[in-house]
Amino acid sequence: MSMRAPASDLPLMFENVSLQAGATIILNSLSLTIAPGAPTLIVGPNGSGKTSLLRLCMGLATPTSGRISWGGRSDPAPTRRAFVFQRPVMLRRTAAANVSYALAQAGAPRSGRARRAADLLTRVGLADLASRPARLLSGGEQQRLALARALARDPEILLLDEPTANLDPAATRAVEEIVLSAAQSGIKIVMASHDLGQVRRLAGEVVFLARGALCERAATADFLDHPATSEARAFLRGDLVI
């Protein structure tokens, strides 16, 4: 797209990044490089800092200390990144208008928007619901619409914060299929999840967080079958990791 910044946002680098809210340490001196390739799954118990990590990746939050860079630049506008929230906010308009809105914000020319919106809705399986008010869609449909909106931004990196946490298995499968096809089209997926089945189905690699710290990073199969840390072993056993 002509509006797109020519430079790449990848690799996305965290150097000793800490995030504090008041006296609470949310992320503690985290260093991490996210490179192009297979999906990166951010895994860890609730409260381990997954959402905060994703928000930092997007640029929605600023670190208390440390440095984040996107393709070597420290503050690029989020034109090459898109975010799908756990509970996406549906604009008070039709499904098609939600996608058109995202296209407009991404700088898509007015003339092609309606057609592109229709394509995107087809891609997420919502073509039949294009003229339905977005707020009246089911949870799974809303999440797919949020994915269509994110894809409308033609992102290089797609960040997803537990998008299937509130969905039933069928809806979860629909979302996962869209995410996988996005990954196959070359979009870098960075997704938080605490569903180990989902991790197995999607991930190329796992970043495991516990108590705001990066505990372990490994290829998915290695992580699931031979966890290196006691925290990861406890998490995989289903123990409460405090």
């Binding site: 997007m58 929605l60 506008a77 989020p78 034109t79 898109a82 975010f83 929230f85 996406p88 906010v89 604009l91 008070r92 308009r93 809105y101 995202a102 914000q105 991404a106 909106r149 931004r153």
Partner: peptide, 27 residues
């Protein structure tokens, strides 16, 4: 407060925020 994250993630500018919120709050 409801829209902040979503609009920021869509990189909506100041004027766009105002018009979007006014339109979505129309009722």
């Amino acid at each position: 407060t409801e829209y902040r994250d979503e609009l920021s993630a869509m990189n909506v500018g100041a004027v766009g925020r105002m018009t979007t919120l006014l339109w979505d709050a129309r009722f």
